[in-house]
């Protein structure tokens, strides 16, 4: 079972991964975006880790809802409302249980991913974070590591795609050949989840 502490550790692991990869995310974003993805997410997840430590929400749902809210208020770019909606909707779908199963998380996460699609109006293949999140949500029903692998593969598969959403879409064909920064950071989030599960001894 996954408790509030597991979700706090997931968010902390994501903050660490975003810190480590911030330069790479910004570099990817300078190719097809406005070169602020790494620093924006760094600011956002640093604030998330801080607020979770300070307020220590008691349930998995409350941890993710607070984290999402914090991202929306601190990021300053489109990744704020998108990741904020993902976590907040996932948190709301988890309800008020003190502990949840991986299956419950997989279902809630799928609802969160669907909310991201609705907010941004993007679909699979548009070269966005959804290209990592959609396969991850599906694979999470089977295992944490499978979700991480699916997210990473999905992010890498955005390289040959032409962007159809966001600022990168203004580049048209020139967006082809670059890995999408949003899909790349989405893979970091899901990889941090698998890492947290592994370190905490949760089943696969």
């Amino acid at each position: 079972m996954l408790d509030a502490d597991f979700f706090r550790r997931w968010m902390a692991a994501t903050a660490t991964a975003v810190d480590r990869e911030a330069d790479r995310l910004t570099e990817l974003d300078s190719a097809i975006g406005d070169a602020d993805h790494g620093s924006n997410l760094q600011r956002g997840f640093t604030a998330v880790a801080a607020v979770l430590e300070k307020e220590a929400p008691a349930t998995p749902g409350a941890v993710l809802t607070l984290a999402g809210r914090q991202l929306i208020s601190t990021v300053g770019g489109a990744s704020g409302p998108l990741y904020g909606t993902l976590l907040r909707r996932t948190g709301k779908a988890l309800g008020e249980d003190a502990e949840v199963t991986r299956d419950q998380l997989a279902q809630a996460f799928a609802a969160g991913v669907a909310a991201v699609g609705q907010l941004g109006g993007a679909q699979a293949g548009d070269k966005t974070m959804l290209d990592a999140l959609l396969p991850a949500a599906e694979a999470l029903a089977s295992s944490f590591q499978g979700a991480a692998d699916a997210a990473r593969a999905g992010a890498e598969a955005t390289v040959p795609l032409q962007a159809r959403k966001g600022r990168a879409s203004y580049l048209g064909e020139r967006s082809i050949g670059h890995q999408d920064p949003g899909a790349t950071s989405a893979a970091l989030l899901v990889e941090a989840l698998a890492e947290t599960a592994r370190d905490g001894g949760a089943e696969a």
Partner: peptide, 13 residues
């Protein structure tokens, strides 16, 4: 962009 998404996300809250 983020102006649209931020207001939508705030309204959803």
């Amino acid at each position: 962009g983020s102006a649209v998404l931020t207001v939508k996300a705030m309204l959803a809250e």
